[in-house]
Design a protein around this nucleic acid. Structure first.
Length: 209
DNA sequence: TCCGCGATAGCCT
DNA sequence: GGCTATCGCGGAA
């Protein structure tokens, strides 16, 4: 895990290739509170302008601009009024493809991760995209960081590769569009894979009846 | 273990 | 003004 990050070429490929090959690799964030590293067990592919579930579907905006930039950068967004989720941009510059990091196992810095999520069991520390960000200490300030820069605080490293025979695919979690496309990838049997939740439309808030 | 629900704020039509 | 790439809690099974 120490040493050079994965090269930019790793991310400069179609998202459906990058996503499964990311399983088993390690995301590391260096912070003043200490380094935290997560071995990825679950990811999702978002295929750019033709994918109705992608933030890039309706074109470039201030929020999703990083997705339209070069590969090997972190796209971090804020959602549900309280959570952050982290993607890795892939494909050639401008194609706006990205991989959502959904879950993983803490392989370093468990103490720092527990300090950020004191109510979590060890298994749940990075079990879910918003939990993973919180455990790593990733938020708005990390949006746009280059994860291929050896000096950078946020990097991706080669880890214990996932057994190809154990890689599974299925529909993405919590999304409404393109339900039929199996763009979620995970390591079968890994306890840190998040439980599948189907998309539920929010009930309208009524002031009166 | 599974299911339903509320919290909460920024983005986009 | 509606929707959201979620989470944690409580209650039922």
């Amino acid at each position: 895990m120490s040493g050079e990050p994965l090269p930019r070429d790793f991310f400069d490929r179609p998202v459906e290739e990058v996503a499964p090959s990311l399983l088993g690799h390690v995301v590391r964030h260096r912070t003043p509170e200490g380094d935290v590293a997560v071995r990825l067990s679950e990811v999702e592919a978002y295929a750019g302008p033709l994918d109705p579930a992608s933030h890039a579907f309706r074109g470039k905006t201030a929020r999703n601009a990083v997705m339209f930039g070069p590969p090997g950068h972190a796209y971090v967004y804020f959602t549900y009024g309280m959570h952050f989720c982290m993607n890795l941009v892939c494909g050639p510059d401008g194609t706006s493809m990205a991989v959502l990091l959904r879950a993983g196992e803490i392989v370093a810095g468990e103490e720092a991760a527990r300090a950020r999520r004191p109510r979590s069991t060890v298994r749940d520390l990075a079990r879910g995209p918003a939990r993973l960000c919180q455990a790593l200490g990733v938020a708005r300030e990390q949006n746009g960081l280059d994860v291929c820069s050896p000096e950078g605080p946020l990097t991706v490293h080669a880890g214990e590769p996932a057994d190809p025979a154990l890689i599974r695919t299925g529909p993405r979690t919590g999304v409404n569009g393109a339900k039929d496309v199996p763009w979620r990838y995970w390591i079968d049997g890994d306890p840190t894979v998040s439980p599948y939740r189907r998309h539920v439309p929010r009930k309208k808030v009524t002031a009166d009846d």
